[in-house]
Design a protein around this nucleic acid. Structure first.
Lengths: 150, 150
DNA sequence: TCTTTGTTGATAATTATTATTGTTTAAATT
DNA sequence: AATTTAAACAATAATAATTATCAACAAAGA
């Protein structure tokens, strides 16, 4: 996290009409640095080490504010726990039912494929906001990463 | 619900190694008759009218048993609430963020499209269990149904 | 500076779900 | 048909995740 990045986050908060506070900076920062789609609790645990005064309630509240302002996204696992994601561009998720990991999976070809399909298949009385492909299964070797090729 | 249907449910339960009890019959029956993907609470409310003695805990436990045996499926809304579905064939869901409705959306073409895509795009160190397209947006007229054409 | 409004931490409350326990019941066995 | 037994039940307590409350504080505006 460079000074430049910090400036950028400050701008982002201000742009969305949010006061720039230490808590908000830290929470956003941690979420941005984490690619495991943490729960509120997980973010809180990370923060606590350096900022023991920040309360869990504030983490929940702040994340919710971010979601409402469109700064971050809220997703859920198939077990029903809420997780947060600093990536707001449309992308898909691979969920491992064993390790509970959520792995990002962005693919323009797939986006186009589905988008074209939905255009053909008209859904009446409905305005589409977004679509996401949820892929679920299990890692073969939990110690290793999932690799997307081809 | 005819006598034949009831017999069929009894067979289903027995086939999955479950004792046939009144509670289980009623719970499965209600879920099967409901196409709104109810929560445990919702199923309980429906049941209560005719069977005031069945407890909410039993509804939760029974649904969980059904899920484990593969008789029904558990899904969640983007708000994180668990819902149940008697349809166990793979199908997609359209979620209305306004009315909180989940509408089934089965399309073989889409299935093939995605399946072919995933075959090309190899996901290493991972065994795929299932995929589902989550479409979310809002009904234009909440009083009317969503209609899929084309 | 004074006032207003927004933010925070501490804590209480709520909601959804799961666990426990004594009792009852379905179905296997006699 | 009566007895046994393991599974299932209702009632209730417990837990986990999340949200609400509220007093104290900080920043922005008058």
């Amino acid at each position: 996290m460079t000074l430049k990045d910090l400036q950028y986050i400050k701008q982002k908060l201000a742009y969305h009409g949010l006061k720039v506070t230490h808590q908000r900076l830290v929470i956003y920062q941690v979420l941005q640095e984490t690619d495991t789609h943490p729960a509120a609790e997980g973010i809180y645990e990370k923060i606590k080490k350096r900022n023991p005064s920040i309360s869990l309630g504030t983490v929940y509240k702040t994340l919710e504010v971010f979601v409402k302002k469109g700064l971050i996204k809220k997703i859920n696992t198939s077990e029903g726990n809420m997780r947060y994601d600093a990536r707001i561009d449309n992308h898909n998720h691979i969920y491992c039912t064993n390790t509970k990991e959520i792995i990002d999976f962005k693919d323009l070809e797939l986006d186009m494929l589905v988008r074209a399909f939905l255009k053909r298949k008209k859904i009446g009385n409905f305005t589409l906001k977004e679509f996401r492909l949820h892929i679920s299964g299990e890692k073969i070797d939990p110690g290793k990463h999932i690799e997307i090729t081809g």
